[in-house]
Simulated assay, not measured.
Amino acid sequence: MDRAILAALQRDATQTASALSGRIGLSQPATWRRIKRLRDARVLSGRRVVLDREALGFGVTVFLGVKLATKGRVSLDDFERAVTAIPEVQLVEHVLGLYDYRLRVVARDLSDFERVLRRRVMTLPGVGDVEANVLLSEERRPGPL
């Protein structure tokens, strides 16, 4: 039942416990208790609205691999603090591999992305090598766990 609740809430987090209970075949109080238990266990946290980037004028998405020139704890903290202040950077992931960070950057078009790259990303503390991969299409959106 918990998995059915989680799957339904991932599709639409605005559902009430009453509406959700009808969909999964459980009483409204039992559904509400299960949702509360999932929140208390931090399996569920918050509700999000998914914005359409293209409808908002952000037609380009680029994944950046960023390798830091220096890798002390101070440079990691400085980089993370600075990169999270850039509004076009939608996701910052500290990764293991060829690059130290993977960023998801949105821009209005390629010239706007170039501006973000040159004026914001490349000037961040500790940035060494950068590799850009432009998103051509997104075939699969993240689904339920």
Rank of each mutant, 00 (worst) to 15 (best):
L26D: 03
A82N: 03
A107I: 03
L6R: 01
V60S: 07
V134F: 09
K36D: 13
A30N: 06
S18R: 11
R47T: 11
V92S: 04
S18Y: 09
R115L: 13
E139N: 06
V89S: 00
R118W: 06
A69S: 15
A82T: 07
A82H: 04
L135P: 00
G128D: 03
A19Y: 05
Q10C: 08
D12I: 09
V106K: 04
D78T: 11
R108F: 13
V105H: 02
V92R: 02
A7R: 06
S21W: 04
A41K: 12
L91D: 08
E114G: 14
Q15S: 11
R140V: 14
D2N: 15
Y101I: 01
V50R: 05
L76C: 02
F79H: 01
R104G: 12
R33W: 15
P29M: 07
R11L: 14
L20Y: 03
V134E: 10
K71P: 02
L96F: 14
G143P: 03
R11V: 14
K36H: 06
L56P: 04
L68G: 02
V50F: 10
T84L: 06
D100T: 04
R102C: 12
P29H: 04
R120T: 03
T61H: 09
S27K: 01
K71R: 12
R39P: 05
L51M: 09
L124S: 01
D112P: 00
E93H: 14
Q90R: 15
E54T: 08
T70V: 13
L136I: 14
G126P: 01
A7C: 05
V49R: 09
R42V: 10
H94R: 12
Y99G: 01
Q90W: 14
I35A: 01
V89A: 01
N133Q: 08
S18K: 14
L51K: 00
A17C: 11
Q28P: 03
R73Y: 04
V49G: 06
V127S: 01
V62K: 01
E131C: 11
S21I: 11
D77H: 10
A132K: 08
P87D: 11
D129M: 12
G97I: 15
W32V: 02
R11I: 15
G59Q: 13
L110V: 10
V127Q: 02
S27I: 05
R140I: 15
V74R: 11
G22I: 08
G22A: 11
G59F: 07
R141C: 15
T31Q: 03
V89M: 08
R23M: 13
D40W: 13
